[in-house]
Nucleic acid binder design. Structure first.
Length: 915
DNA sequence: GCAAGGTC
């Protein structure tokens, strides 16, 4: 159907694509360039034949979306309408001022063309932009023949194939985006106006910004992002440290030292751990059960996409995702790296990977590595792995131009270019190879293992300096070999809360839940900082501000999961339905907006929840004299923190009204003393306690609620939280302390209307029973080893009624704090030598004979037989060799039950063992 | 003064 030459207007999504495609199609022959109305969007001209039809091709571009969506004028002013009206207020698309010149170029060129070919990116947004271009062009030329070019990479064959097989634009794809835009706008604008006006009227909000500019925005991406941060923060607060025990063993020989860890990991039940430990100590000979040697590979990363670039730049350089994208964009604009906004993490088989490596051979730092890669004799090359993502539009991020660093580059430019190059070189390299040895030993039926690793070939790790693979040597062992452990200890530990979310963690959460796109995730993160919803520390970890926490808490109290990723997930599913033609845009819009409007109206009805949550952190603006004792920001120091020894401990009142004295170093330091629930008022005085340390410990004037304390206690009390105050201790025990209900944590299904808790659990040491620290931080400890612990006398319950059967020292009565036995009392010997332990309730149980002497304590001493006093000092090294002796000083030989002393069985099967 | 999505 060859005939008269037709003029074809071709439009790409960005200038770089217009240039690339024009260059490919023209084969760089007769390609002319001229200026358009917009300085960024050139117009390329050349001749081409589409299916035999001679064409004069004009190739230009837009810069992403050409149009924006906006409410009609009369709804634009914040006070012009009820925010609820924004769910049905008319909206229209328009070309914003900064895109007008692009529009004019399109109009001018479209007038003289017969065909319009759309070269927008082949995703939903691209299809939507295509329809924006169609609207602009067909408005001035109704006779345009509109076609779509589908291409998945800027590669010659693909582009030529694409132009010879033009298709129709996909309206369903564009519709899905239209609907998303409209829903985002209506939800965002309505909630933002509502909550901003509500809060600004009600509270004094310090946000570091001018009150006039304070906007409390709500958005379907920014709020779930904030939700991730708050949820983690709550998880940390709700964490209840739990003590656990593990048995550890080391063995030193001429070849070095091996640390064996218990293959059970750890136990939360102290008694069980002691019983097993005792079995080990009775028969301490270790027998090597298994020696496994295997080759281990550490693979290089997948090719680099945007999210990985952001995560790695954050991890390796602590660069913010926003800065990373800004620098990457500049490197891309200057031609040094490929397009930085890509989901793709696998290279097309058509990419000339060798050519990219070749370019890097001259680099002073990694040039030699690039040369080795290209040397077939070095066998370093490996085809890159496939990460499983492909946006069909862009390749993984890789270097496109060699540079030893340009003079105008900042440090960040240098770092990011280096990361892109090294990552690429790593991708085409062999994995690192290590030889791993795992040794398993058996002590009295318990298994322990130790491992060592030798790196045989670093391979990709030679160039990818950001990753490492630790190696450690252990002595050689053979199966059946026997030895006496150098140390065998029962150690305690405590479970720790997870850390605050890092930027890399946050990006992972967003990626996993589909919040934002690779090109926008960093924007959402930045928005949270700009809105003062969250802060980021030097380690790139995020903490919600009071404002951020209050907003999430308020909506959560209403029972709405507006701060969860579900809303976005549902919208994403609906968008997919629309883009596949299974649901119309009208149906999606109507149902979604109806639901959201109902949610909005309900939220507004329940605004008291939002106000309540805000009132926890902020002062009411319409009340001058708050009757609350401690408002946000007020800091009243009670004492220096003895745990972290860095910060002060201050008096605080939690959301539930309970008082506590907590460390300002929270959440890094979790030292806290909860005060009795019956306290109605607490004021720090200038009086200083004469006995508690570290001081000064300021006395607090308490007022108790009369009805909540026994009649023999005074309503007013000047007390000390340092541990010396019997009255405070007694009232804490009688009235209880701290939160009344568990704090919300991940997946909490707490019904709306719950009182809120911070639940910074009261720290109570299970050894000395003092508040303010856990047993692993107990000052009474001499070392972390259970075998060498000295227990402080319990001030409250120190009245020992029984004595240790080994040393005769009066025992202390303590309270178990493990999940299985919480609240149960037991006796232990305060001596560091004895491992005496007995449940209080078992003493009254006649089945066990009622005698504590049935317990067979064990001690470990060094060979000098000095009674063990020479070992276990806080910093002292372990002795070179240790033999185990029984309580009587005889070498341990026979097996005896720890509970009843019977040599016929072990304690774990003892018929007399307590529950 | 609101959203999220493109991109110079």
């Amino acid at each position: 159907m060859a005939g008269r030459t037709v003029n074809v207007l071709n439009v790409a999504e960005k200038p770089s694509v217009a240039k690339s495609v024009a260059t490919i199609l023209s084969r760089n022959q007769g390609l002319r360039v001229r200026e358009g109305r917009s300085r960024y969007n050139k117009i390329f001209e050349f001749n081409y034949a589409i299916r035999g039809q001679p064409c004069h091709m004009l190739f230009t571009s837009v810069i992403g979306h050409l149009m924006e969506l906006e409410f009609e004028e009369r709804y634009r002013k914040w006070l012009s309408c009820d925010p609820a009206d924004l769910y049905h207020a008319p909206v229209h698309k328009f070309v914003p001022e900064d895109k007008k010149d692009i529009k004019r170029t399109l109009e001018e060129e479209a007038r003289r063309c017969q065909w319009l070919v759309l070269w927008l990116d082949c995703d939903r947004e691209g299809e939507n932009i295509a329809f924006e271009v169609v609207e602009v062009c067909t408005t001035v030329n109704r006779h345009l023949n509109v076609k779509r070019a589908r291409f998945s990479a800027l590669i010659d064959r693909e582009i030529h194939q694409s132009v010879q097989n033009l298709v129709e634009p996909n309206k369903w794809f564009a519709d899905a985006v239209d609907a998303r835009q409209e829903i985002d706008l209506r939800i965002g604008a309505s909630f933002t106006r509502f909550q901003t006006m509500l809060m600004k009227d009600s509270f004094i909000i310090e946000s570091g910004t001018d009150d006039r500019n304070l906007v409390l925005s709500y958005g379907p991406c920014q709020f779930p992002t904030l939700g991730f941060i708050v949820e983690r923060y709550w998880e940390i607060q709700a964490h209840e440290p739990e003590e656990f025990w593990s048995i550890n063993c080391s063995h030193k020989s001429d070849e070095g030292i091996a640390s064996f860890s218990w293959m059970r990991g750890h136990l939360f039940d102290y008694t069980c751990a002691v019983i097993i430990y005792e079995m080990c100590v009775q028969e301490p000979t270790a027998t090597v059960a298994k020696v496994r040697q295997q080759e281990k590979l550490k693979y290089p990363p997948h090719p680099l996409n945007t999210i990985e670039l952001e995560k790695r730049a954050s991890r390796y350089f602590r660069m913010s995702s926003e800065q990373t994208m800004k620098v990457a964009e500049e490197l891309y604009q200057a031609g040094f790296i490929s397009y930085p906004r890509t989901e793709t993490d696998s290279f097309s088989s058509r990419t000339d990977l060798h050519a990219i490596v070749q370019e890097q051979q001259a680099h002073p730092d990694w040039g030699a590595y690039a040369q080795r890669l290209l040397d077939p004799g070095a066998s370093l090359w490996r085809n890159p792995s496939n990460g499983g993502h492909d946006d069909k539009a862009h390749p993984p991020i890789h270097p496109t131009k060699f540079s030893i660093g340009e003079s105008r580059w900042s440090q960040d430019h240098r770092k990011l270019y280096e990361l892109v190059v090294r990552h690429f070189l790593a991708c085409v390299s062999q994995p690192a190879v290590g030889a791993e040895t795992i040794v398993e030993i058996d002590i009295a039926g318990e298994l322990f293992s130790a491992s060592g690793r030798v790196i045989l070939a670093k391979n990709y790790l030679d160039v990818y300096r950001f990753e490492s693979w630790g190696g450690s040597m252990i002595p050689t062992y053979t199966v059946g070999q026997q030895f006496i452990p150098t140390t065998l200890t029962l150690d305690s530990g405590v479970t720790r809360p997870p850390p605050l979310l890092s930027e890399a963690d946050l990006l992972s959460c967003m990626d996993k839940e589909g919040i934002g796109t690779d090109a926008t995730m960093h924007d959402h993160i930045k928005k949270l900082l700009d809105r003062f919803y969250a802060t980021k520390d030097a380690n790139t970890r995020f903490t919600p501000t009071n404002l951020g926490e209050a907003l999430v808490m308020g909506y959560d109290d209403m029972g709405y999961k507006l701060w969860k990723p579900y809303l976005r997930a549902v919208m994403e599913r609906d968008m997919k339905e629309v883009s596949e033609g299974n649901k119309t845009k009208a149906v999606f819009l109507a149902s979604s907006l109806q639901q959201m409007k109902a949610c909005f109206l309900d939220a507004r009805l329940n605004k008291a929840k939002l106000l309540e949550a805000m009132a926890i952190f902020f002062e009411r603006s319409n009340r001058s004299g708050s009757n609350e004792i401690h408002t946000a920001g007020e800091v009243v120091v009670v004492r220096p923190c003895g745990l972290c020894q860095e910060s002060d401990m201050v008096l605080k009142q939690n959301r539930d009204g309970n008082f506590m004295v907590g460390c300002l170093g929270f959440p890094q330091c979790r030292n806290a003393v909860w005060l009795p629930r019956s306290v109605s008022e607490a004021t720090v005085t200038t009086n200083i306690c004469t006995s508690c340390s570290p001081g000064p410990v300021y006395l607090i004037q308490f007022k108790f609620r009369q009805l909540e304390i026994p009649p023999n206690y005074n309503v007013n009390h000047l007390g000390c939280i340092g541990g010396c105050d019997e009255i405070l201790t007694q009232l804490s025990e009688i009235c209880g302390t701290g939160p009344r209900v568990p704090a919300r944590g991940r997946g909490s299904t707490a019904p709306p209307g719950n009182a809120h808790q911070t639940n910074m659990r009261q720290a109570v040491c299970t050894y000395c029973q003092e508040t303010g620290h856990f047993s692993n931080d107990c000052p009474s400890h001499i070392s972390g080893s259970r075998n060498a612990q000295r227990h402080g006398m319990n001030q409250r319950t120190g009245e020992a009624s029984i004595s240790c059967n080994t040393c005769g020292t009066p025992c202390i009565l303590r309270t178990a704090n493990t999940s299985n036995n919480r609240g149960r009392k037991f006796y232990t010997c305060p001596s560091q030598e004895c491992n005496f332990f007995v449940w209080e309730d078992s003493l009254n149980n006649s089945a066990g004979g009622g005698s504590v002497t049935r317990s067979n304590s064990i001690r470990a001493s060094n060979t000098s037989r000095n009674g063990g006093r020479g070992r276990g000092s806080r910093n002292g090294p372990h002795p070179a060799s240790v033999t185990f002796v029984s309580a009587t000083g005889d070498p341990v030989s026979g097996r005896r039950c720890f509970v009843c002393g019977d040599p016929s069985h072990f304690a774990n099967v003892c018929p007399n063992r307590g529950a």
